[in-house]
Design a protein around this nucleic acid. Structure first.
Lengths: 114, 114
DNA sequence: GCCACATACCTTGCATTACAAAGTACATGG
DNA sequence: CCATGTACTTTGTAATGCAAGGTATGTGGC
């Protein structure tokens, strides 16, 4: 079920990780794995989308411990998008919480008349 | 974009509304509209799913101001599911917030060596 | 009577996105 | 030479939000 909750939030998470420093997909997955469940099959297509939106650009760096890494770097547009998403995220959480916190009727379970 | 964030959370919202008292889809849409954007085309299929899961059952009530209303009532299983989802929701928000709040490197934008 | 409007229901088709599964390729160590 | 870890990518499936459209009931104005 949690899968559905994640939709849209992972993009924000990936941008937040990149705001802390350039990284490559495999490492992003590992970083996010410390806080949440995430799979490679989710992140690689997501990185492609971020590129298509021009929120990141890429460069290759050779590694001595395996194949070359494709690093992603936030663009100015990406930073703007990240800021907007953080605001949206906070608004979204407030909205849901306000629904959850709405007053419960003192009389239990009576159909309301409009 | 916010559309994606909503996935999975609306089910929780609808159950939370029903926990405050039986209601019908058209009214649920209006109640939720006070806190968030929501459309009928989303809610009606969702109500069907809640029925399929046996989280709600229904009864008809005639209205003097329009067609009969199909009221939904939370079942015990629905209350259990609601409680579980509320917990999941809080965990989810914590996870995302922990990613957003993770420490920023003091040195800006340097590729990390593993 | 008729017509617009609000109420109330429902369905179809589209877009988005998370994920499992599978595959490719490089480097190291037994 | 073969298993393991690193690192990338693609394909297909499932879930679900939403616009758009459709049906039907009741009220009030003309």
């Amino acid at each position: 079920m949690k899968t559905q909750l994640k939709k849209g939030a992972l993009e924000l998470c990936v941008l937040a990780v990149l705001a802390r420093g350039d990284s490559y997909a495999y490492d992003i997955v590992n970083q996010l794995s410390r806080s949440m469940e995430i799979s490679e099959g989710t992140v690689y297509p997501l990185m492609r989308r971020l590129q298509d939106e021009a929120w990141v650009n890429t460069y290759l760096v050779e590694s001595s411990t395996g194949p070359s890494r494709k690093y992603y770097r936030l663009t100015p547009a990406g930073e703007t998008a990240l800021a907007a998403m953080q605001t949206e995220w906070r608004e979204f959480v407030s909205e849901i919480d306000s629904v959850l916190a709405a007053p419960s009727p003192t009389e239990t379970r009576l159909p309301k008349e409009s």
